[in-house]
């Protein structure tokens, strides 16, 4: 099964993306905990797209494709904004004391931690695609 959406670069769309992601995760038979993982990773990736890639300009849009089968959900996030490769972002220090904590980088960290595979590519026309997949415990 597959669903495709086009959204404006506005953080108000995050709730709707969350609902669609949860529905896809349920259809694929994931546990509630795994569905929470997928929802968080997709939310973080879309937030980066909206805020960094498309500079929160609601006249610009991005595409989200959810593709799922039993025990697997794939997500494609496509846009033509500024290049931003989340796979290259360094890992934050999650053991630092509060006063030494950096407040950035956690979103990318979640994506890498919670998804089974994360890939980023830019095609010759400048279209950027972030691809993520989550597999159920019995499907890895």
């Amino acid at each position: 099964m597959q669903q495709s959406f086009e959204f404006p670069a506005d953080t108000a769309v995050l709730a709707k993306i969350g609902e669609a992601t949860v529905a896809a995760g349920r259809s694929a038979g994931f546990t509630e905990s795994e569905i929470g993982d997928i929802q968080l990773a997709v939310d973080e990736a879309c937030t980066n797209t909206i805020m960094h890639g498309l500079k929160e300009d609601p006249s610009r849009t991005f595409q989200v494709v959810l593709r799922w089968a039993s025990g697997e959900v794939e997500i494609f996030i496509r846009e033509t904004g500024d290049p931003f490769d989340p796979t290259e972002v360094p890992q934050p220090d999650i053991t630092a004391a509060l006063e030494d904590r950096s407040v950035g980088g956690l979103g990318i960290y979640f994506i890498k931690q919670l998804m089974d595979e994360v890939k980023y590519r830019i095609d010759e026309k400048g279209m950027k695609t972030l691809y993520m997949v989550k597999r159920g415990a019995g499907c890895r």
Binding site: G36, E44, T47, L98, E99, R101, G104, L106
Partner: peptide, 19 residues
């Protein structure tokens, strides 16, 4: 649901309050 943007607010405010 909480995302890193929510965590950031919690962390920044807690840090400021303590400091």
């Amino acid at each position: 649901f909480i995302a890193s943007a929510g965590l950031r607010v919690v962390l920044v405010i807690a840090k400021e309050l303590r400091n």
